[in-house]
Design a protein around this nucleic acid. Sequence first.
DNA 1: AAACTAAAGCTTTTT
DNA 2: GCTTTAGTTT
Length: 702
Amino acid sequence: MTKQALLSELNPQQKDAVLNNKGPLLVLAGAGSGKTRVITYKFTYLMSVLKIPPASILAMTFTNKAAAEMKERVEGLTGKSVNGLWIGTFHSLSARILRKEIDKLGFQKDFCIYDSSDSGNLIRSILKEFKIHEALYKGILSKISSLKASLISPEKLLANEDSYGFDEKFARVYVRYQDELRKNNSLDFDDLIMHTVNLCERHPDVLEKYQKEFSYLLIDEFQDTNASQYRLSRLLASKHKNICAVGDDDQSIYKFRGAEVRNIQKFKKDFSKTKVVRLEQNYRSTQNILNIAGSVIALSPERMPKKLWTENGKGEKICYCTAINEKEEARYISQSIKELYLKGRYSYKDIAVLYRINQQSKVLEEAMRENGQPYRIFGGVSFYGRKEIKDIISYLKFIANPDDSVSLKRIVNCPPRQIGGTTITRVENEARKRDESLYNTMKHIIKSNGYTASLKDKIRGFVNIVEELIDEKNIALPELLKKVFDKTGYSSWAGEEKADNLTALVNSSEGKDLRSFLDTASLFSGLDEPLNDDAVSLMTIHSSKGLEFPVVFIAGIEDGLMPHFHAVKDTDELEEERRLFYVGITRAQDMLVMSCARKRRLYTSVQEQQPSRFLSDIPPGYYHCVEKRPRADAVASAIVKMPANFFNTSPYVTGARVRHPKWGVGVVRDSYGETDDVKVTVNFPSVGMKRLSLKFANLEKI
DNA sequence: AAACTAAAGCTTTTT
DNA sequence: GCTTTAGTTT
């Protein structure tokens, strides 16, 4: 890409950010201001125009997803592979350095990286040995994590007994934990950063080597850096000072896990003559949404002054809906989504429902399932993540592909058939010898000698059941599912509570074939795979950071939830809640709907809830209030009027599948008019949305 | 090895 | 209240 072409796609501030490449640069990138664009264009500019070898640009992000997106976009802009470049997360890039240098710290280069469950197990075994209540391991783990994030090693903790709220028992655990890690030649996540900092500080020659190797540093989400990450960045950049930090103090919502917004101020102090660029033009949201966002964040003290503006229109009015309780709130949201969808203006994937705590997802899920709406939960357990659903899906997967040994292992003892770990290990060993799938090995074992009769009986029992199911794999899916429940005895074993979910699964399989059903099911459970499926996104506001949706619902805008009651006593935490609310609002592109419940069940008690205190910071004219009355729900709606065919008797109701002679099969999205002159909106996969009159269009219902 | 029972925890979370 | 997990029993 040429310099001209590159710059022509940027606004003046973005250009400023991309063109300033000598010395420290701080880019304050407001929500929706094209932050990723600036970072990727800057990378491309450094590489293609300034001819800086791409391998000497260190670009650090927080999540794998952000790193992957950056790589993809840089590849797209430059047309060159990003393989081997230093684009990645703080952790992965630190690990890469440590793989080469860690022997200098007394570890071997083939060190292991412990994930949080490994770390947790290690802590628990230490607690057991020290006779400390094991249930405390989570708290201890997070305390150790925050110490490491602040670069406080066990030695340092012991040396400053008075400084850090010293607790002798805890210090012993910390010392021991770190010892064990070393013995196991292992590092936990926080060690990756802390040890890299140690390496640089204790070995000036190594530091110098990397200072030379990286002639430019690019850091994303700078407001999320913790002390150790900041120190590392500073060390690596302290020589040439070519460092660009991109962040937004208004979107700092991870203080609880060690992030320090103050690093933004520190940056300006530590790097003299820092050039500051503000990206304030917002390309994402309507004026109405920005007004709300702006009035909420304006009251945040100590923020760096900035004001987002947009050339977008005023857009839709913003609503705040009050429901009598959390179930009604969920119904209201689900109903509104239905109407938006039927109007054909939005598909499900354009819509997100955000909330403060994962617990809120439960009622939302229930409401959406009642209405047959596809949804996807980010984090937490979704419908497809439930054990019973995963079990049954595994049965189906196995029926479709008996070589799938992973699924086999999941189902072989569900319900229990006395085929436990020992038996499976034997079968696995035999399978390895014979170089065959587990299932084929099982069939072999039944026929061969040299196994006890009871073992063969157990396996035969399983194989017979499954074999019958495989024979019938081509019957209609709901039938097949019922056969699975009966033959395996799953329903009676699973109990009644799970029966509802299983029935829901049968209903959702209506009219689908095995293959496509399984595809959607695994897409739902797959966490990181990009989802092509049309589904509403359900997630916490935290997980929504960095994303955008045409339509955003934020549920539970009440005191106690937003801000959360744990945060109201502490001013800093309260301000973080404010920023969290701001992050939620700024995810919306065209439409924002906030809602609350008068009464909400939280843990044991039903509480009377008050509207969020943050609402009083928004001028009254910026949004309008709606009351959700439980009975009138089907008729009255805050957002859009119900489709005219609500009581329509025409066979072409919304959701019906129809065939058109020219456009093929489509789905009715909406229909209007009286019985003798019905007009329908139909979505055809081939040509998109079409408005047709039943009198003239030669539609056939299928 | 599985099934039952008691008990804890319960804001947000990536690496 | 509900869900997860640890510990005990069969």
